[in-house]
Design a protein around this nucleic acid. Structure first.
Lengths: 113, 113
DNA sequence: ATAAATTTGGACATTATTTGTCAAGATATT
DNA sequence: AATATCTTGACAAATAATGTCCAAATTTAT
């Protein structure tokens, strides 16, 4: 159902979600960093939202913990978006217009094909 | 009324909006660039969405053309956001979660004060 | 309580991205 | 055709992101 993520939405940052997945399986940060082929200090910072993850890491995390990749990507991108406009009092309007723009751009693309 | 921007929403990019404002007053690009203290080639690129504007430029544009600064800022930020997630099929969920996160972060801030 | 394992913080070099600037080419206007 | 306007691409400089290391701090196990 299309409102699944809306009703079940998880407001944890992507970093917190990664940390929770890792801790649920009692995997040391050091080991997960090795699996992801990144420095452990980098992973530490990602889990505490001091550094950005990226989609490649999200992808691997989903596989390693058999987690819902789409949900993780939503967490990741919503962090990025929220960070960008968090200080704007019109954040809600900004998001509405952004959505309309994306939809609009897609209808154009379809008609061009 | 709070849904003003929603119903009146302008889906032109910030670049297009700047160009329209400039052309309405028949001001040469060269001259506007001088007022903004940027290179004319940079302004040309901003108007065609090849380079990003910034809030300082938006601010000056609003003053120069006596335009609605808030509307321009919405156009600017919505461009940024739309660009970031335009390829994601879950863009709508991403925006919903981003909004919820910002609201959530603000309630926290208020309670901490 | 101490040792061992784990996580964090900060410095630094490397790489990538953004920004400013210029000059020549293209387009439009007079 | 000359002039004014705008666009394009190249390049350097500034800024930001990323990778890497290691020591300090914290947590866990013995």
């Amino acid at each position: 159902m299309s409102r699944y993520y809306f009703s079940m939405q998880n407001l944890d940052s992507i970093g917190t979600q990664i940390r929770k997945l890792r801790e649920e399986t009692e995997m040391p940060l050091r080991k997960l960093a090795a699996l992801l082929d990144i420095d452990q200090s980098t992973l530490s910072k990602i889990e505490r939202d001091e550094r950005r993850a990226n989609t490649q890491i999200i992808d691997q995390i989903a596989k390693i913990f058999k987690a819902d990749k789409e949900m993780l990507l939503i967490a990741f991108y919503s962090d990025v978006v929220a960070y960008e406009i968090r200080e704007e009092k019109t954040f809600s309007e900004i998001l509405q217009v952004a959505e309309a723009k994306i939809e609009y751009q897609r209808t154009i693309k379809k008609n061009v094909k």
